[in-house]
Amino acid sequence: MDRKNEIAGHILAIITIIIWGTTFISTKILLKTMTPIEILFIRFVIGWIALFLVNPRRLKIENPKQEFYFAGAGLCGITLYFLLENIALTYTFASNVGVIISVAPFFTALCAHFFLK
């Protein structure tokens, strides 16, 4: 790997971490005037606009079953995640939610080890 690409990758990773980390604090501030569902909706609209600007073409559906898999993955992996994160921020500090979220992959690996033998 080229040294320039490696440095650029590290810089982009640091920027991503900073943006991701500030979302906890900004969501906590937004919760003073908005509900968790309103924040979730606005976040999705911003995300949809960003994705549309990057790639304005609509994806072709291979088969309807695939569309249900995508909808299920979006519901469980994105929608419920952010909704529950927003709700958690109403009950505790942003730092607590950040720590809980950061250890979630560890518990996922533990559950996978024990349940997917």
Rank of each mutant, 00 (worst) to 15 (best):
L31F: 09
Y91M: 12
F68Y: 14
T92R: 00
A13K: 06
A50R: 03
I7F: 09
L53V: 09
I100W: 06
F68W: 13
G72C: 10
N63R: 08
N5T: 12
F41C: 08
T33C: 08
F70C: 14
Y91R: 10
I11D: 05
K28F: 03
F52V: 14
C76A: 15
T92V: 04
T27V: 15
R57C: 05
I46S: 02
F44W: 11
L51Y: 09
T35E: 13
F52C: 13
T92P: 00
L83H: 00
K32V: 12
F93S: 11
E38Q: 08
A8I: 15
R57V: 12
I25L: 12
I46N: 02
K60V: 07
R58E: 11
V97F: 01
I87S: 03
I78R: 01
G72D: 03
I39G: 03
G21W: 02
I39M: 04
G21I: 02
L84Q: 08
N86Q: 06
F68I: 13
I39P: 02
P56M: 04
L59A: 08
W48S: 10
E67R: 13
P36M: 00
A13R: 06
A94E: 04
N5P: 00
I42L: 12
G21C: 04
G74M: 05
L53Q: 03
F44Q: 07
L89H: 01
I78F: 14
I17F: 13
I101M: 13
T23P: 09
T27F: 14
A50I: 15
E6M: 14
I15A: 15
F93D: 15
L40M: 07
S26I: 11
I29N: 12
P36A: 00
V54N: 05
Y91D: 06
L59S: 13
K60W: 03
T79F: 13
G74Q: 01
L51W: 08
M34L: 12
G21D: 01
G98F: 00
I100G: 03
D2T: 14
F44E: 06
G74T: 02
L12H: 07
I87H: 04
L80R: 00
T90R: 10
L84V: 15
N55C: 04
F93G: 11
L75P: 00
